[in-house]
Nucleic acid binder design. Structure first.
Lengths: 339, 339
DNA sequence: TTGAAAGCGGTACCAG
DNA sequence: CTGGTACCGCTTTCAA
């Protein structure tokens, strides 16, 4: 295999200097059209590919490398986000380096430091539940390194982000249950300090209030882990009450699957005796029987958009961009009381 | 924030040359213990971190960067593999760059070329269904870049790999169904050219033969996509036969979920009328009702081991390592006829 | 519009 | 055991 072509190879072929070649390739304006064309042609012929490493060293910045930090790569939602980022990155000739914080804000900081010292061009991050803006992200601004938050955001700071409209998603979900005739609608929320939990809970309350229903505190329970196990456990607590709920809106599909298990074990029929609505539209939702009504979360599109935002910030060197993705309710079987 | 310390800063502090500092830091032997100790101390004081970019350029190799190529990052199994790789990489101060081939062998080659031209230290790859060793991987050997196959392997070449024991896993699965008293056991395999499909099918056949059962061709159907939809479709074909099967062993859990849906729609009870066993032990398997008996695939451990192998190859510069992970059958409810 | 030369932060060769 | 120096491939002054 022939060695990769370098600037000097092109220069020699044309009897010009590397400087000129560099200028031509980087589309600078202080160069004649003729020379530029000639360089471009030879570059193409020799299949020249710029050496990322050399550029990086010279610029003291990794060339075209984007860093992605996620709480969990094997969590369905985040893996779709990653997929979205990667597809856009590939199109734009970016390399993607990935780190997993495991919901540990200290590890998250470590990863960020590594990425920065490597000189990544930008960072796309879905913060852990516990990450404080000041501790983990404030210095990114000073370092002038473009970054975009994903999923979880810090509204009090003027930063770029992509997220889903948790509030309206939850509102629609609960409203839908009300329309279907459910009366005692419970909610399994995620524990505090996680914006997606509080937003969804807010939507839940508002939907009840707007329909003139009372919002009972005992019908709201909190899950730390947002897992199937928690869903099961909290459902069993609901059903040990004197007046159990006739529907449950859960903060994630995973939690909903725990509701299903409890219901199945105790011969509670979904949806006639218990309505269930989840959140995420993960693979689970169409695999559960009956199929789960849930709120769609567009992970892949969020990832793509996050990359686009990074790209624009880098180009324009000033704007910040925000997008809140509409959360659409996907009505399936688990909420069809009148089925 | 102070600028990062460089070799020359340490050198100046001690009135020695950068060469000596470099030697000390790289633990070469042609240096006095005293000097080395002094250098190490100052380096520590200045919080010296080697500049990856500079090392990379000089060595013409990205310093401590491992490339991972996967068919799909949002597929559960592969995302656990990635998780495993990342945890080991982080421990060893490696950066992980990831590419997604989307089961497209051309794109896979593109990604590999990118990674190589970036000079990654090594490559961990789960090949697409269609990747030919010659076309996509043979040149890695020439380039002397360490690589480890994951999941899918090329047995005719002496390469390092980690994979799961598909044959024995399938054998156990079918044998278990036989022991539970199922007689007409069908198999939904994955289409040809994908080793995991053929190995699992082989295990299926052998288990039947060893138990003195006949292996009917009409009880084996092939899925191109290994999805729920295919599972549903092929199950409906089985049940339009004069003598439908009383159990189905599927090549993945996803496919099994399609079997579930068909069964549920047609009031076929699992497991009393139809036994089902899947493969992967994905999140699905414990969420399906009844819980799915399946064969465990240790994605995370495979990822960790793949990284370890890469690490050793790099150090020893010679060996190749292979590991086939025992595939353990996880018995749940979907195969318990006598429940 | 072009070229020469310095230098990004290290490593490796050679001489002493 | 230590230091001088060239150089990895590219960008960026500065001068022509």
């Amino acid at each position: 295999m022939a060695k990769d072509a370098r600037l000097i190879d092109i220069a020699n072929a044309l009897n010009i200097s590397v400087t000129t070649v560099s200028r031509a390739l980087n589309d600078k304006d202080d160069i004649s059209q003729k020379t530029k064309a000639a360089v471009l042609e030879v570059a193409d012929m020799l299949d020249y590919k710029p050496n990322r490493l050399a550029i990086s060293l010279r610029k003291k910045k990794a060339f075209n490398v984007i860093g992605v930090v996620l709480p969990n790569v094997d969590h369905y939602f985040f893996s779709t986000v990653l997929k979205g980022v990667m597809s856009k990155a590939h199109l734009n000739n970016y390399l993607v380096i990935v780190g997993e914080s495991s919901q540990d804000d200290l590890k998250e900081k470590e990863i960020l430091d590594e990425f920065i010292s490597y000189g990544v061009s930008g960072i796309l991050i879905a913060p852990t539940k516990h990450s404080s803006f000041e501790a983990n992200f404030a210095y990114l601004k000073q370092k002038r390194i473009p970054y975009v938050f994903m999923d979880r955001t810090y509204d009090e700071h003027d930063t770029s982000y992509v997220r889903s409209d948790d509030y309206h998603g939850a509102y629609q979900a609960v409203n839908h249950l009300i329309e279907k005739g459910y009366q005692r609608i419970a909610h399994i929320k995620s524990s505090d300090g996680w914006s997606i939990g509080t937003e969804r809970a807010k939507g839940y309350r508002q939907a009840l209030t707007d329909s003139g229903l009372t919002c009972y505190d005992e019908l709201i329970k909190s899950s730390d882990t947002a897992t199937k196990e928690d869903g099961y456990q909290l459902t069993s607590e609901f059903f040990s009450m004197d007046a159990p709920p006739d529907a449950i809106f859960t903060v994630t599909d995973d939690v909903a699957s725990g509701v299903y298990e409890y219901a199945h074990q105790h011969q509670i029929d979904i949806p006639s005796q218990l309505g269930v609505v989840g959140f995420s539209n993960s693979v689970l939702s169409s695999i559960l029987i009956p199929k789960l009504t849930t709120v769609e979360q567009l992970g892949e599109q969020m990832g793509e958009t996050a990359f686009d935002y990074f790209f624009q910030i880098r180009k324009d060197k000033r704007h910040s961009f925000q997008k809140t993705f509409e959360s659409k309710l996907i009505v399936r079987e688990s909420s069809q009381r009148d089925k």
